[in-house]
């Protein structure tokens, strides 16, 4: 079974925290799913191409011109200032 340490590390990478009371349940179901998906290791896929999408994806280019619209994306921001999204400081001066 996957260890608590590993779960904590994956949670950290996912910007999540697993509380003590949830740990056993998470370890159990996480392990049961991992065990199941390991089934794929039986398959020989040596000369097989990967299919990330069933559609041939191409980059779509357009002129960088704003279109008229009345969509107010900023209304859902938790905090904004001078028409910008306000976030906490992420760069600090070491001094």
């Amino acid at each position: 079974m996957i260890s608590s340490e590993e779960i904590k590390n994956i949670a950290k990478l996912s910007y999540l925290e697993i509380k003590e009371g949830e740990m056993e349940e998470m370890r159990k179901s996480f392990s049961s799913i991992l065990e199941y998906v390991k089934k794929l290791q039986e398959l020989n896929t040596d000369d097989i191409e990967a299919t990330p999408s069933v559609i041939e994806l191409e980059s779509v280019m357009r002129e960088d011109v704003a279109k008229d619209n009345d969509c107010d994306l900023m209304s859902s921001f938790s905090r904004s200032k001078n028409n910008y999204l306000e976030v906490k400081k992420i760069l600090y001066n070491e001094d």
Binding site: V37, T45, I48, E49, P52
Partner: peptide, 13 residues
């Protein structure tokens, strides 16, 4: 895991 699954997807398709 991930790359293996994308290849398995090709086989399913």
């Amino acid at each position: 895991f991930y790359k293996k699954a994308l290849k398995a997807r090709t086989l399913i398709k």
